[in-house]
Design a protein around this nucleic acid. Structure first.
Lengths: 152, 152
DNA sequence: GCACTATTGTTGCGACACTAAACTATTTGA
DNA sequence: TCAAATAGTTTAGTGTCGCAACAATAGTGC
């Protein structure tokens, strides 16, 4: 046997899966997820946490539910995320001015610095993946199509 | 610098997320997943189970680990999946001829019929999503790009 | 034949992510 | 004023995922 230890799926017929966008999307997204984890696991940041930070960084003062709605997930999932990010001194809960029920989320000073280096890592990873495409125009095309497919 | 609490998510700046393929992939895949669940939840079939059935249907006699390797997930995850599909009388475990450790997976008669109607539903959903793109050529282009991005 | 390693199915564990329901405190609106 | 709606939180349930073991079996070199 060769030391390539391949014997993967070369002789497997994927049938209908080959034409399913949902299946291909899942495979591609799984690959991105694992690569992201390789890059950011030492910093304790998952893709979901990164998205929260990115939103708060660009939109200081948003409430937890506003961030949850922007990211399309349940607001109950925000609690643990914000708890962790606050514990890591990345973002900060401040009581909202006009609503004593809600908090306003802000980046801490160290959080801004952290997000800067974190973004550099993520962008490096993204650039490596984007280089698999032909050019920047094709990347923009793909981004646009994925946005179309993400709409309800 | 104001501490105003923003209350609306209508004008949220997604910042770096807008240019991240990983984020857009996740959103698109989540949408496909939820749509798939709406279509197939009454049949008790998840996207992962559908993939297993699709592989076994086209490749009768494959072992569990062969299917797992084809789908890119751990073989330990196959156990519960095959258990469920066998309980639903969709696929069947037969002892492998030349290896008493492994089973060969086959579709049952009712399983073939079940997969036929199931495929129709899934293809209908896929066609509705594919119609968001310009033409069939763009769909093939997207499938090819996603396959490229899924490779390690 | 024998020892050593690899592989298969399986189980259990821990780490997450998502969903839904319920609860408190507060705000809103008729 | 009072009922309904909302923000944050907690809890429970479900599902997935990878990792590490394990017994049984297969393949390998000697």
């Amino acid at each position: 046997m060769s030391d390539e230890t391949k014997q993967t799926d070369s002789n497997v017929d994927f049938g209908i899966l080959n034409s399913l966008l949902g299946y291909r999307l899942r495979r591609a997204q799984m690959n991105f997820f694992s690569k992201f984890s390789e890059v950011c696991s030492d910093l304790g940041i998952s893709p979901g946490l990164f998205a929260v930070i990115a939103i708060v960084d660009r939109n200081p003062g948003l409430t937890q539910t506003a961030v949850a709605q922007a990211l399309g997930n349940d607001r109950s999932a925000m609690v643990a995320a914000v708890d962790k990010l606050e514990q890591m001194d990345i973002i900060e809960r401040r009581p909202a001015k006009n609503d004593r029920r809600s908090y306003a989320l802000f980046m801490t000073e160290s959080g801004k610095e952290f997000f800067s280096t974190l973004s550099d890592r993520v962008m490096e990873h993204e650039k490596a993946m984007a280089q698999r495409l032909k050019n920047d125009k094709e990347v923009d095309w793909l981004l646009d199509i994925l946005d179309t497919l993400a709409k309800d």
